[in-house]
Design a protein around this nucleic acid. Structure first.
Lengths: 226, 226
DNA sequence: GCCACAATTGCCCTAAAGGGCAAGATCGAC
DNA sequence: GTCGATCTTGCCCTTTAGGGCAATTGTGGC
């Protein structure tokens, strides 16, 4: 629910428009070619997306590290591979550390090595200039869809991870064994506690995880513990 | 169990040696460059792998369609992209229909488009000549590992799919609901049968699937049904 | 020492699952 | 029509899960 305790912000009409665009998709373009930046910016703006352009990877990283608040919505990166200072693949390496925004690489000259490297490192696609508008829009739409799903997954994972963190070591041990199909009695023998205690931990753990049935529990345990 | 009802075969000592090589890995090389074929054949044979070479994609497909029996073991394809008659990407498309052997593409000229296409179509890697021996061996080893795992997965899936096929429609309906956490009584109300019958179907289905616990059942149902 | 609090356990009861046994119902085959 | 196989159900019993309640134990703080 949008009940975040931030200080109230001044919202202008342009902010509202930007928020709407961000909700549709925010596209970050990084290229040392100014013409590309303006052309892409124009195209994506025309398509109703929010578009930010950066003339170099360091410039982009600088803004990124500011951690300025963003309107919610899916996001993707569109980055040229061959740039002075820092090339696209190097940027990709740096981002791979903690960032998981879909990255689309763009290349002027057709270097196959770069394409292989980039795609192996997780780039969603590798486009070669000249780029057809339709293909570009399709790829961007796919990237935004990936990020949208990725954001949902991350939120879900973060939520469950937080819940799992509240579990006792005992509760975790019980859950693991419950998810392996052991009965309460078997678990009690296994970790040398009373069966009643097993029941108690099991109940508490399920409450903490917010699940009511064994199948749900199994899915969560399978996804997070082992 | 190796109790297949095939006619007994004559096993020569060379067959035994080939079987041992196949167990280590079978590498199929497709290239129109005869030098590459001999060089790769020599290299892989030296490394203890079984290696078959084909001078064109159609030649390979012809042999493939013979469905001749093979010694068990992991397998991978090493295929040049630029060849007369049929290029590597076209072969990849044809194989993608039903084949799932890991494919490594090789390119002489460095065409980025081809690399992107090939990798997107599922090629495990895209090597560019000249190829370093160490890198080649590493990629091949990875491909063989992938196929080994893939074969295990396929066997497991085939096994379970066969078991699932023996289930009644009723049994499947019950299992689905069991895996969603419904109680026997709820299921009985849901599909309008007696609770005792639900128990019966549930029991039979678990016997047919060869599982003894609810968690195992949940995992199988999650993987196959919905 | 005393107290609050969390961890642990025993006792006991209900609900649900697992399953044996036999009977009714259905349906195609002879 | 009758027979056999299969599907379905009711009855009944045991095991397991779920959970309330109170007692015990250990621990840190006052």
């Amino acid at each position: 629910m949008p009940d975040n305790p931030r200080p109230r912000q001044i919202v202008t009409t342009s902010d509202q428009a930007l928020a709407a665009r961000c909700a549709r998709g925010r596209i970050l373009v990084i290229d040392d070619d100014a013409e590309i930046l303006t052309a892409f910016g124009f195209l994506f703006t025309l398509e109703g997306y929010a578009c930010e352009t950066y003339s170099s990877a360091p410039a982009f990283l600088a803004v990124l590290h500011e951690n300025r608040p963003q309107f919610p919505g899916p996001c993707c990166l569109l980055c040229d591979v061959s740039m002075p200072e820092m090339d696209g693949l190097e940027l990709q390496r740096q981002l791979a550390q903690d960032e998981n925004t879909p990255l689309i690489l763009i290349s002027g000259s057709s270097g196959a090595e770069e394409a292989v490297t980039g795609l192996h490192a997780g780039a969603l696609d590798f486009l070669i200039k000249p780029i057809e508008t339709e293909a570009l829009l399709a790829v961007v739409a796919r990237a935004l869809a990936v990020d949208r799903q990725g954001q949902l997954d991350r939120m879900r994972r973060a939520n469950l991870t937080a819940r799992l963190a509240t579990l006792t070591e005992r509760e975790r041990a019980v859950l693991r064994r419950v998810a392996q199909g052991q009965t309460n009695y078997e678990i009690s023998q296994d970790i040398a506690i009373a069966e009643r205690t097993v029941k108690l931990y099991r109940q508490r753990a399920m409450e903490k995880l917010g699940v009511a049935t064994l199948p749900e529990l199994v899915r969560i345990v399978d996804e997070f513990i082992y």
